[in-house]
Nucleic acid binder design. Structure first.
Length: 466
RNA sequence: GGCGGCAUAGCCAAGUGGUAAGGCAUGGGUCUGCAACACCCUUAUCACCGGUUCGAGUCCGGUUGCCGCCUCCA
């Protein structure tokens, strides 16, 4: 059974069959880089990074492109406010983006195209649209002739007339129709601009994605993804531009993730209720944030709150502990156990369920529950007096495999205690041997002050950071 | 006004026809020198009303409530 993807275009789950067998061309709308990313921006990055990982896990060769919009009204505004040039602002926040998303366990895209690097292609693209009659010049601006494109509205499932009834769209006297949108904007005095056949100016908002997707992935891509709020007008306009230009299907599967809410309201830069990733990571383990994001289906909204963050911390801790306990047992008590086949087959069942649920429109919430199932299974196994190296290693490998798909590796950095602390630990082991529990507890408290938790097991004392 | 989404235990959250996954929290037990970790047990008339069906959280119709898009926004 093929992977099922909910396609916003059809509003249904569809079997995923890429254009070219075994290969996936994927484009994810990236941020406008005029500020640090907030956790709402981080959601698509994490979600589609996971989609990409899963597709790769299932054997696809994925080409993943995600843009930076580095020319835009907001960047110009930010540059003016800070008294620096637009490219400098862009560069600063692109670097910040990489730092934040890397911390969140997201791999870099194969290509991160930037608008400023594609001016000739953008201008050519617009010229072609003008020639085809899909765009027109008006006082140095170029507008897209929305009504000319037959399929306009097919993604947002609205007809041109329905959209117009919205009535919040202002009819500028430069436009033929209120729904027309700018492909190119004439430069205002002092603004960053590029030479074009229509004079100095810069691209409108939507054109860059059409141009850069085509430039790096070709006329037709398999998956185009982004936040729900991009459905209209951004993605609708991309379709209009690209399909008018090429005459071919622009993107075959459209994926849209839900929002992050704060107190049940959408988090957005315009509402000014956003939480920056950069700030949050100062006090929070980045993996917790990733766990939090993946614990809800990507198309559903998530409400962000302290309580839920704490739940994610506790859940992640449970997984990490299960993994650490396996490692500890492997190091301290290898051997041969019975019923190896039974345990291996139980593990395999969990793996199959994991794949099955991820195949079903990337149900990461359910997939995480499979990791919890695996934890219970391995913890139960550790109750056995005699464990086998083979089974322990299989558990560890499966944990690594499945958690890796979700981008939640349980890194176990080999850490050493300093000599003084090591001596204390030895003293405590000796004290317990002599049943001097008062001293043993005293030492355990000392460790606790150093944020080290001691746990006594049948296989000896182990420690972990609190 | 148009289009769409959501409503499942104290909290979060899976689940698109066959007597409700999972996590957190709570309570009880086992394990432990005591703990910790862990394991076992414990908690749901699936918003409301009607319909289809042998059978519905799941399909259809309606009601209520919340949210989103139609304007920059992931």
């Amino acid at each position: 059974m093929a992977i099922q993807i909910f396609n916003s275009l059809s509003r249904q789950k569809e079997a995923f069959i890429p254009l070219e067998e075994g290969k996936v061309k994927m484009y994810v709308c990236g941020p406008t880089v005029y500020n640090y990313i907030h956790i709402g921006n981080a959601r698509p990055v994490i979600v589609y990074d996971t989609v990409r990982r899963y597709l790769a896990y299932r054997g696809y060769d994925v080409t993943y492109v995600s843009n930076f919009t580095d020319v835009d009204d907001k960047l110009i505004k930010a540059a003016n406010e800070l008294g620096v040039e637009v490219p400098e602002i862009a560069e600063r926040f692109i670097q910040a983006y990489f730092e934040d998303t890397k911390a969140l366990g997201c791999d870099e895209a194969d290509v991160h195209p930037r608008v400023m690097d594609h001016m000739p292609q953008i201008i050519d693209f617009i010229e072609a649209l003008v020639e085809k009659g899909y765009a027109y010049e008006s006082q140095g601006d170029i507008y897209y002739r929305t009504r000319k494109f037959e399929g306009y509205g097919k993604l947002s499932h609205q007809s041109v007339d329905e959209l117009k009834v919205g009535a919040r769209i202002e009819t500028g006297d430069k436009k033929e129709d209120a729904l027309d949108f700018a492909l190119w904007k004439a430069a205002k005095p002092g603004e960053i601009s590029w030479e074009s056949p229509w004079g100095k100016g810069r691209p409108g908002w939507h054109i860059e994605c059409s141009v850069m997707a085509r430039e790096h992935l070709g006329d037709t891509i398999d998956i185009h993804a982004g936040g729900q709020d991009l459905t209209f007008p951004h993605h609708e306009n991309e379709i209009a531009q690209s399909e008018a230009y090429t005459g071919k299907t622009f993107a075959r599967y459209w994926m849209h993730n839900g929002y992050i809410n704060i107190d049940n309201e959408k988090m957005s830069k315009s509402l000014n209720n956003f939480v920056l990733v950069n700030d949050i990571l100062k006090e929070l383990d980045a993996q917790v944030l990733r766990m939090f994001m993946l614990s809800v289906h990507y198309r559903h909204p998530i409400n962000y709150s302290q309580q839920l963050v704490e739940d994610a911390i506790a859940g992640l801790e449970r997984l990490r502990t299960a993994y650490a306990n396996l490692k500890h047992r492997l190091e301290t008590s290898a051997g041969l156990g019975d019923h190896t086949d039974i345990w291996l087959s139980k593990m395999n069942a969990i793996k199959e369920e994991f794949v099955e649920t991820m195949d079903d429109d990337f149900n990461t919430a359910n997939a995480i529950s499979k990791l919890f199932d695996l934890s219970r299974l391995s913890n139960t196994y550790l109750l056995e007096k005699q464990t086998s190296t083979e089974v322990l290693e299989a558990f560890i490998a499966l944990f690594g495999e499945l958690a890796g798909v979700l981008g939640l590796p349980f890194k176990q950095e080999a850490e050493l205690l300093d000599a003084e602390v090591e001596a204390l630990l030895a003293e405590r082991i000796e004290a317990r041997k002599n049943r001097d529990f008062a001293r043993a507890d005293e030492i355990r408290d000392l460790f606790k002050e150093k944020n080290i938790i001691l746990e006594d097991t049948a296989q000896g004392t182990r420690w972990k950071r609190g």
